[in-house]
Amino acid sequence: MGTENNSHKPRPVVKVENVRKEFIIRRTHTLKETLVWSMTGRRSEISERFRALDDVSFTVNEGDTVALLGYNGSGKSTCLKLISGVLREDSGYVGVRGKVAGLIEVGAGF
C-alpha cells in the first residue's frame, strides 16, 4: 500500500527545449562578387540572418509515434537534422536517449 508503480511512467527518448537555429544567407558566391558589393556601398546587403527555428520545444516519449507537418520552409528538416546530430542548435537543448537513424530525404517517407 502506498507504493507507486513507475513502470508505466513515459520515458523521454527525444527532448527539444527552447531551441533556436539561424542560418546566414549570402547573396554573393565569389570573392569578386563580394568585393564589387562592398565597393558599391551595399555591404549590409551581402548577407542576412534567417531564423529557421525559434523557441521550439517538445518531448517524444518511448513508444510514441510522431509526425512533423508544416509548410515548405517551416523548419521540419532543420529540426530533424538537429535531432540526428547533423546540425548543432544555436541555443536551447536537444537530447536523445539511444541511437538515431536519420531518414531526412524528402522521398524517404514515400
Rank of each mutant, 00 (worst) to 15 (best):
V96S: 06
A52D: 02
K15P: 00
S47I: 07
E62R: 08
N5I: 00
R51H: 12
G98E: 08
N18Q: 10
V36R: 12
C79L: 15
K15N: 09
V96A: 04
R97C: 09
K21A: 00
T65F: 14
A67N: 07
N61W: 06
I104M: 14
N5V: 01
E62S: 09
E89C: 10
H8V: 10
V106R: 14
I24E: 15
R42D: 12
T3S: 15
G102K: 04
N72P: 08
S84L: 06
G92Q: 02
H29G: 15
G75S: 05
P10L: 02
E48L: 08
L87Y: 09
S7R: 11
S57R: 00
T40Q: 14
E45H: 12
T34E: 14
E45K: 11
G107I: 01
A52M: 03
V56R: 01
T59D: 07
V19F: 00
D54T: 02
V36P: 02
I25W: 01
V56A: 07
N61S: 10
G95N: 10
V13C: 05
S7H: 12
G73C: 03
L35N: 09
I24Q: 12
V106Y: 14
K21Y: 02
N5C: 03
A52N: 04
V66T: 05
D90A: 04
N6L: 15
Y71D: 15
K9I: 13
N72T: 10
M39K: 07
E89D: 06
I104K: 06
L69Q: 06
E22A: 10
E105T: 08
V94S: 02
R11S: 15
T3C: 09
G70K: 02
T34G: 04
Y93L: 15
V36G: 11
H29W: 11
N72R: 06
K32W: 11
T28A: 01
K81T: 03
N18R: 10
